[in-house]
Structures are given as structure tokens and as C-alpha cells.
Write a protein that binds this DNA or RNA. Sequence first.
DNA 1: CTATCTAGGGTTATATTGTAACCTTTAGGA
DNA 2: TCCTAAAGGTTACAATATAACCCTAGATAG
Lengths: 148, 148
Amino acid sequence: MPENCNACERSETASEALSERGARLTDLRRDVLQTLHHSPKPVGAYELFDQLKEAGKASAPPAVYRVLDFLVEQGLAHKLQSLSAYTACKSTPHAHEAFFRICRECGQVTETAVPASLKDVAAQDEFIAEHLVVEALGLCRECQESTL
Amino acid sequence: MPENCNACERSETASEALSERGARLTDLRRDVLQTLHHSPKPVGAYELFDQLKEAGKASAPPAVYRVLDFLVEQGLAHKLQSLSAYTACKSTPHAHEAFFRICRECGQVTETAVPASLKDVAAQDEFIAEHLVVEALGLCRECQESTL
DNA sequence: CTATCTAGGGTTATATTGTAACCTTTAGGA
DNA sequence: TCCTAAAGGTTACAATATAACCCTAGATAG
């Protein structure tokens, strides 16, 4: 891991934002967040656990899940339901919800805003949508080319 | 289970549609489909398995998962990723994709079409979206009232 | 009619993902 | 300094899902 990379800076920014809210970015949380930022594709909880364990930084699965839950609550990370995997939030300010397009070949994920029209439909019949899961699985342009 | 209910009729309709495509609605598949149709809310694979086992109709989890995979492939059922549970497709003709609004109180799910605008966003940058997962978790109108 | 093929399902074992419950540590405030 | 609450450690397990292999019945070709 490079020392002064973009991903690490993001973690620092996150740290400041958190302390304003009375939440703390501990060592373990920072490690997880940076790992997510450094990974080109979503990371499973156990994959994360294995890495942290090798580095002597995590003890058992519950620790990892607690950190992941925290990061998701704070909007610093997202869980991709289709993959049962996690990814750092790439938008600023950090959003709790986004539309994820996931390439099944390279695994890369692009994060965009959830269209207002979808939220409109969600709110029909007085439904209160507390959380949206919006994911598209498919092939990114690059992988279409390389699969020719 | 009532004998001539709407849910059972749907299974028969499904059966005809399938045979046109060269696929068969076997006893086990019909049982699973009807169970899904009769349930007011999504059903987990193991919940389904337990029921079928009690009725002497299923042997082990893989059988259930195979049937569920089949039904989902055929558009007769959907998997709700947020719940790891399954529900019968309520739209006609059967769709492979829909927007699901899931009430966290009563568990009921309403299935509506995925807005075209979302598909448009999905297709940006030449991304080929092969499958969409669109779910909203929240509170339906009825449960808002009863939770006052 | 017989041989073969295949779809569907049975069976066993195991992988993967996620949590409950309880204990220990530690940073920071009264 | 003592206390508290948040964070994390630890053990055990629950819930979800699949790999791999086998068997049978019905379709199909010869």
C-alpha cells in the first residue's frame, strides 16, 4: 500500500467528518476502510477478515462485521447485495444509497446517484422507503471489447 | 391450501407457458411455486425446505435450490436479495426483473415495473445490464398507521 | 424391443456468510 | 482516580448456499 495515496487521504477526510458526528475512526476501522479503498473491486467480509488476520489486525469474523456495519451506517462503505461484498463509498459527500453497476467480468463497480424517478416510484401509495438497493449486473464496455 | 384458488390457477397457466418453451413443471416445481403463491410474504429457501420435508416432498436443500433457480430462470419467481428470500412473480406476463417494495413490518412485497429511466442510466457508458436488482425496504401505508 | 441418453431429483458432505452472547480493554469524562 | 461506555476479543453457532456424485424414469434412436 502506498503511503500518500488518494485512498489514504480519503480515510483522513472521513476521519474528520466522523469526529464531527461524535464517531471515531479507530485503527481497525481505518484499516478496513483503506483496504476497501485500495481494492479495485468489492471485497467479501471473510476475504477482508483473512487479510486482516494475516496482518495481525483482526481476531475473528464478528470484529469485521461490526466494522463493516459501522462504515455502512456512516455512509463510508456500501454493501453490494448481489455479491455479498463491500465497497468503499466513492461519492462525496458520502451517500447511503447509490446505483451500482457491477461488471461480472472484471468485478469493477461504478457508483452513480439513484435517479429521482426511482425514488418517486418508491414513494407511491405512501410507502416510506427507508433504504434502496439498486444494482445492475452486466458487462462494462472494456470487458465487452476484451471478450470479443 | 384451497383447491381451486387463484394461486393454483396461476401454476397451471405457468405450466402451459413452460411446455411451449420445452420446460416442464414437475410435481416438486409445482409444489414450490404454489407455496410461494400462497405465502403472503417472501419465503426463505430453508423455510420452504422445512415445509416440503414435513409434507414428504423434498429430501435436502439442493433440491429446493435447484427448483428455485429454475423458477427464477423461467421468470416465475424472484429472489429478493435484501432478504435472501423468494417470492412468486405476480406480473403477467412473467417478468425477470421488477422493482420490489418490501415492508419491514408486515413483510408484504409489492412488485412494480422497473422505470425506463433506471434502465437508461444502467445503459450509460455502453454498460450492458444483464440483470437488475431494485428493492426498496421500508414501511407500507398500513403498517405506518398501525405503528402510530 | 433394447440400448442409450438426459433431465430431474436424491444424497452426502461441506463451503460461505452472518450473528448471539459474553468477556476484556481502553479512552475520556466526572 | 474511578467510572462508564464504546470498541473490540472470543467462542460457539445459525443461516444460506453449493459441490460432487449417484440413481431413476421417461424419451429417443436404432
